[in-house]
Structure formats: structure tokens, C-alpha cells
Nucleic acid binder design. Structure first.
Lengths: 246, 246
DNA sequence: CGGGAAATTGATGACTTTCAAGGTGTGTGG
DNA sequence: CCACACACCTTGAAAGTCATCAATTTCCCG
């Protein structure tokens, strides 16, 4: 099947001048270490909306970092039922799911046209061997993934549907704010279907919750645009004092 | 408060002769690497039933490996609602939850009197720097934890309560079998309360499901003793063809 | 501008939780 | 060694939350 040419692009800047270098692997590395890192980084990966970066059962190719766009990771059972695991945004790393067996355990699908950097697996091992900074940052990133999954489990296991949405919106708010964007108004990268799945509920339920929370003056949501109208009420609903560390 | 002396003990054998060395860090290491590893291992950690190995917000002390007993990890929200994250059995590693910030993000509590080995965090970093085998095995173990969390999310998000129990029992069966024990008859290390929490349901619901599955001839459960009567039906219920890799 | 995907809304029912009560087993102290 | 207390587990009835089915409506893309 012929594909239209990718017409989204971005000039490949250096890690040192990348706006995401404080949330990506370069974080905490010395200039010389960054220079070494950079030799192994392929900055030309492009994935079109709805295409897969990798599939479950694929052999691992490398570790990826998102420059722009968004990726969802998900896992499916044999009936084809999908569970969305995480939404990855610019600066996030992907590929740790293959650490166990060298085979990816989940699917990674682009929610929008997405640009990524890649470190081939063997280079990654090599960098970990040579650079303590990379090793540390890698552990950091892996730990972030584990912590995230733990939070999600807590949310799915203990919260009701509206509390789960509140928690999610606050996470997103916190995320955007920490990146210098508005924490009160932002655009979600995913459709309702994926979001409801991630939050462990039916699309219809999500829709109803949104309507209800809008009526109650907590938020406004028009398609993917989110406006948080009453941050305090939202936090109260989420029972959230848990702060999110980078 | 005075504690009774620990009267459970085990002579500290070498990693090389430990029966768990093929599922623990020594897996895949050369004899000389194991010797180096062993220098940094403290094999004298004892935790009594119901005591904590560490708490959420504790600074990380090291990475632990379970020799005997069982540990549950769990996370709580500010209302004190707990979500059990994982049950750790002999050979399992703990402590990755602090990789992100150096602070533990969950509680680790002994379900029974438990013996562990410990590698202090700085030694662990040092070992990762020097020994590629340790580095690889560590990645392996971390990947296992990530894969496990993903499976649990899929189960919580997509399965009904009875399917979740079936999935869990098959996991345990598979686990015990791979360790040379019976996969058909085994003893669970946790009470109903913890299990139901882990599976995202009320204790009463779990109890009812067990009764129903016993009536239907799938299993027999007397307290913590599990007997799987009809493995095929159980697998069918769990929709499981997903095999579990070590 | 039309077709179709995405999102909302309503009605109904299933599954699960909650509240309540009773049963069973274990461990400790007399 | 027995008895009592307590934790653990099971069962029942009622209530709630959420999913499913169905019908529209809205919006996006070609």
C-alpha cells in the first residue's frame, strides 16, 4: 500500500540546544557526556498519525524519545480488547517495556504525526556501560514509568469514574505547567475513546462525567480542549495532594 | 515496645549455591562476576510478619531480593485507601519503585516472616558500572516489573471479577510450576483482604466468586490452599493464551 | 457539501459494592 | 488442655454505579 509522503518535519537540532533536554536523557549530563550521547542518537524518526512505532512481540529496536506529537502505548488480550497504558508526550521516553525479554510487550501508536529520536539498543547498552550519567538518568526514567503505573493502578483500583477523570486532568495540568504551558487551558492529544479506555470506563460514561463536571462548574471541555474552571474543586474531587515529581 | 526475638532464621549460603540464583541477580553472571556481586550483598535482613521493609517516602536504602517468605507492595492515597500493587515471592527483587526520585513510592510489608538479601544503593550503582552482567540482569528485572504492571492494568481495566481471579490463579500456578512446585496445588501467601484489593474488588465479591468457581468445578480453595480442579476451564475463563516468561 | 467518525444523551439492566449477620479457625491465657 | 477472643471468611439482601444498547447530534475530512 502506498503511503503519502510525510510532510511534517523539523530540523534536527543538537541535544544541548533541545528545549526538552531537561526532561530527556541529557538531563544532568555533562557537556562532554552529551556529546558522546549525541553520536548514537538518530533524530530522524517520523511516525504518522495512527501508525505504529512498534508492536507487541516486535523485537526491540531501541529506546525512543518524543520530540513532538504524542504516542499511546497499549496492550491487548487475545480477544482484541485493548487497554491503554500510557500517553507519552514530548520529552517522554519509550521502549522500556522490552527490557524484560527483548521483545516489546505493548503496542506504541501515534496519536498525531510524531517526531522522535532513537538510540539503538546496542548503543544504549554501550552508553550505559560508559557513562554514569546516562545510567542514572535511565534509572530515573524507568522509575518514572514504574511510579506512573503505580499511580494508575491506585486510580483504577480505588477511585470512582469521576475521581479518575479529575485525577487525570490534574496530572495533565501539572504536566503542561511544568513545561511552561498553561496548566489551566490545554489540548489533549487523544480522542474520547482512548481516554475512556485508559481510565477504565465506557466512552459513554466518560461523556456523561464530562457533562456533569461541566454543569458543576469544575471544567469545560470542547472536544480536546480542556479548561479547568475550578482547580480547587477538581483537586478535592481527585483527593489529590500527591504532588508529581519530574 | 519490646519485640519478641526473631526465631526464624536461615544459614546464609553463597549466591552460587542459592537455589534461587537462576531467577535472581546472579542469573547469567559468570562465576567471577558472582563473586564480585557477593561482596556487596548483605544476607542478614529479616522482617517479621506484618512489619514493613520500607515505607512510602522513605529514602531508598538498597535493592532487596527475597530468600523466603513474601512481601506485598502497596500504595495509599491520602484517605488511607490502599491499593496492593504486587506480591513478591522468593527470588523476586524489590526497590525499583525508588528509581525515580530516590524515595520509595510504595510500602513494602511482610505477609509472613521473611528473609532477604540486600545490596546497598551505592554498591548497586557501583556494580552496574563495573559488571555488564549485573546491568543486564537489572534491566531484565525492571522490565519484568513493568510487564507485570501492564498485565495487571489490562486485567483491572478489561476483565470481570471472576476472570481476574482466574488470571491470577493461573499466574500463581505458572509461577510455582516454573519453580519446581506443583502448579495444581499451592498455598497463597496472602489473606483474602489483600488479594481482593489487589484484584480491584471487595472481599465479599472475591468470596462469592470463589464459591461460584468451586460449585462450577474449576477450583477448590480452603483458606490459603488452592487446588485447581479444571485447568482448561480456568484458562478459558481467563481468556489466557498469554504465556508468562521468566 | 455529503459521508462517516466522534461525541452526547437517554433508558434499561447487569454486575459489584455496601451493610449486616453468621460461621470458622487460630492463638493465647488461664 | 480447654475456652474465649479475635481475625478471617462466607453468605444474604438491598442499593448504586457503571455498561450496554439505541438514537441523535456534532464535527471533521475529502
Amino acid at each position: 500500500m502506498l503511503e503519502k509522503p510525510n510532510n511534517f518535519s523539523q530540523k534536527s537540532i543538537s541535544c544541548e540546544s533541545c528545549s526538552l533536554n531537561n526532561v530527556c536523557i541529557p538531563n544532568g549530563l555533562s557537556p562532554s557526556e552529551i556529546a558522546e550521547l549525541e553520536i548514537s542518537v538518530d533524530k530522524t524518526i517520523k511516525i504518522k498519525k495512527k501508525d505504529a512505532l512498534y508492536h507487541s512481540k516486535d523485537e526491540v529496536d531501541g529506546i525512543y524519545a518524543i520530540k513532538s506529537g504524542a504516542i499511546k502505548t497499549s496492550i491487548s488480550n487475545e480477544d482484541g480488547q485493548e487497554q491503554v497504558l500510557e500517553f507519552h508526550l514530548p520529552g517522554d521516553l519509550l521502549g522500556f517495556d522490552a527490557f524484560n525479554s527483548g521483545i516489546h510487550s505493548c503496542d506504541a501508536t501515534a496519536l498525531e504525526d510524531t517526531l522522535l529520536c532513537k538510540i539503538a539498543m546496542e548503543d544504549f547498552h554501550d552508553l550505559c556501560a560508559r557513562l554514569s550519567g546516562v545510567r542514572k538518568e535511565m534509572m530515573h526514567q524507568v522509575g518514572k514509568e514504574i511510579s506512573h503505573n503505580q499511580s494508575l493502578l491506585l486510580s483504577l483500583g480505588q477511585q470512582q469514574t469521576n475521581e479518575r477523570l479529575a485525577t487525570f486532568l490534574l496530572e495533565m495540568s501539572s504536566h503542561f505547567q511544568s513545561r511552561g504551558f498553561s496548566g489551566q487551558e490545554f489540548i489533549l492529544p487523544m480522542p474520547r475513546q482512548d481516554l475512556s479506555n485508559y481510565l477504565g470506563m465506557a466512552v459513554e460514561t466518560l461523556s456523561r462525567i464530562i457533562s456533569r463536571m461541566t454543569e458543576d462548574g469544575l471544567i469545560q471541555m470542547d472536544r480536546r480542549l480542556v479548561i479547568i474552571s475550578d482547580m480547587e474543586k477538581l483537586q478535592k474531587l481527585a483527593h489529590t495532594s500527591t504532588s508529581y515529581k519530574k
